[in-house]
């Protein structure tokens, strides 16, 4: 699937923004993932073309970073941390509960396509609010079973309802990349 013209133009602009066009690779991958939900080889080839770089370089970079997805996922992404600081405050129990509540295993997507969830050992930077998870990159802290239930219910709503933005984000006047990120139909 070729990139939307707006994405392609954005990538070409990115190439001009940095002292070296190669620096535009990661922002370009973000732009692609924002548009298409994940990054395909075709999209990488297109980035390579727009930036005038070998495609191998795009794949080398894209595959290094854990946040670039290579296959489609649910409309919402839920990532729960199980590193030690979270473990100390009950992350394992919350992770088990999340899995039971969603009815799919770690890494899976709910049958309605609403939610893909996985646990992560990569600290998400909210140990002070552990146990915690990120929902479409927004922080959800001090998790309890009740809170998880409420969040899931919200996410299961039909497409139009996005995750509520946190304070800082709501004040943003103009942002090019609103959540949710994984909705392919948005493009």
């Amino acid at each position: 699937m070729p990139l939307a013209k707006s994405t392609a133009d954005h990538i070409k602009d990115l190439a001009q923004r940095y002292p070296s066009k190669q620096s535009a690779i990661i922002p370009a991958l973000w732009a692609v993932q924002h548009e298409q939900g994940y990054v395909t080889p075709e999209a990488m080839a297109e980035i390579a073309e727009h930036l005038g770089l070998p495609a191998s370089l795009i794949e080398a970079t894209a595959s290094f970073y854990s946040m670039f997805l290579t296959k489609p996922e649910g409309r919402h992404e839920v990532v729960i941390c199980v590193n030690a600081p979270c473990m100390l405050r009950g992350a394992d129990e919350m992770t088990a509960y999340l899995g039971r509540a969603l009815g799919v295993r770690d890494g899976g997507t709910t049958a309605d396509g609403a939610i893909t969830w996985h646990s992560t050992i990569e600290c998400l930077g909210a140990c002070g609010g552990a146990p915690m998870m990120q929902v479409d990159h927004q922080f959800e802290e001090n998790l309890t079973e009740e809170r998880i239930d409420a969040i899931i219910e919200r996410l299961r709503q039909p497409v139009a309802v996005a995750a509520p933005a946190p304070a800082a984000a709501s004040e943003r006047p103009k942002r090019k990349a609103p959540a949710p990120r994984r909705t392919r139909s948005e493009s």
Binding site: Y65, M67, E122, L124, G125, Q134, H137, Q138, F139, A165, P166, A168, A169, E171, R172, P173, R175, A179
Partner: peptide
């Protein structure tokens, strides 16, 4: 990358 809200705050 995980600090999207903070990214946006800085952008603003």
């Amino acid at each position: 990358g995980e600090y999207l809200p903070q990214h946006d705050a800085l952008e603003t």
